[in-house]
């Protein structure tokens, strides 16, 4: 359990760092542009030198740029911990499987549950979009979509496991149909009430970059988590061999 926790934290920190640096380079120019557009909009609405009361800035933009990377690393660490616990729970009956395909499959499921499905239902919005008055409601909806995504992926896994007697194509099709049904279920949640007063190009670019950083985070996560799992197998094998007295017979690498 504890080695899994360690692997999850390393993979999460590296995945968060990769996503953070990627968006620092590509998404930040877009966010700065969105904030300038927002300031221009609020000046239009309050022309007579009225105080722009929307943002009293606590941090400079450059601090918020650093905050982006730090926030994603912290989030990656936390996601890594939760991932490791879920991974251990799901595989508790049979902890000795091949860690590489398991890491890839688990990361694909986690990506759908916490990244792709919520992003399809409630796509990311650039700075300047989002009413402070509705943020509580929007948080409940977003959290609802993440929770439904996670529960839905457990359902997909259960469908796949319970059809163990059927041929593989049947199991995979049933699992895929379940995943699509879970995605469709997300539209039972209420719509995002906020207007989106930014240009379509900026919005599309921002959402693509947001999704790309999610993909990057989970790709790095899967590679590191699976790779560390394989390495643990390799380093553990010679120890058991030595304990049973086969080490001297093994070829020296």
């Amino acid at each position: 359990m504890l080695p899994l926790l360690g692997r999850g934290m390393v993979a999460g920190a590296l995945g968060g760092l990769a996503a953070g640096l990627f968006s620092l380079l590509l998404a930040e120019p877009l966010m700065d542009k969105a904030i300038r557009a927002e300031e221009a909009r609020s000046h239009e609405h309050e022309p007579a030198g009225g105080a722009v009361q929307h943002h009293e800035e606590l941090f400079s933009r450059s601090t918020q740029h650093a905050g982006l990377v730090i926030a994603l690393v912290v989030a990656g660490l936390a996601i890594g911990v939760l991932f490791a616990v879920a991974y251990a729970l799901v595989h508790r009956r049979d902890p000795r499987g091949n860690p590489w395909p398991r890491a890839l499959a688990f990361c694909a499921a986690a990506f759908c549950a916490v990244s792709l499905f919520p992003a399809l239902r409630y796509p990311a919005a650039p700075p300047g979009v989002g009413d402070a008055g509705t943020v509580g409601d929007r948080q409940e909806m977003w959290l609802g979509s993440v929770v439904l995504g996670v529960l839905g992926m457990f359902l997909v896994w259960q469908v796949y496991v319970r059809l163990a007697a059927r041929p593989v194509p049947v199991r995979q099709c049933a699992a895929a149909v379940t995943a699509v049904a879970v995605l469709a279920l997300l539209w039972a949640l209420p719509d995002n009430p906020d207007p989106v007063p930014v240009s379509a190009t900026l919005l599309w670019d921002f959402r693509m970059l947001s999704l790309a950083s999610h993909v990057l985070m989970w790709a790095v996560f899967a590679g590191v988590f699976g790779g560390l799992g394989l390495r643990a197998l390799r380093t553990k094998a010679p120890v058991t061999a030595a304990a049973t007295g086969y080490a001297s017979a093994a070829p020296v690498r």
């Binding site: 953070g20 968006s23 998404a27 930040e28 966010m31 800035e57 606590l58 941090f59 601090t63 918020q64 740029h65 905050g67 982006l68 990377v69 730090i70 926030a71 994603l72 989030a75 990244s115 919520p118 992003a119 409630y122 796509p123 990311a124 919005a125 650039p126 700075p127 989002g130 009413d131 402070a132 943020v135 929007r138 948080q139 909806m141 977003w142 970059l209 947001s210 950083s213 999610h214």
Partner: peptide
């Protein structure tokens, strides 16, 4: 106060978390 929110502001927007 709003320090945590504002510090993680860009990360929230990018991750798709609701923000003001």
């Amino acid at each position: 106060g709003d320090y945590l929110h504002e510090f993680a502001h860009d990360g929230r927007h990018l991750f798709g978390a609701p923000c003001h």
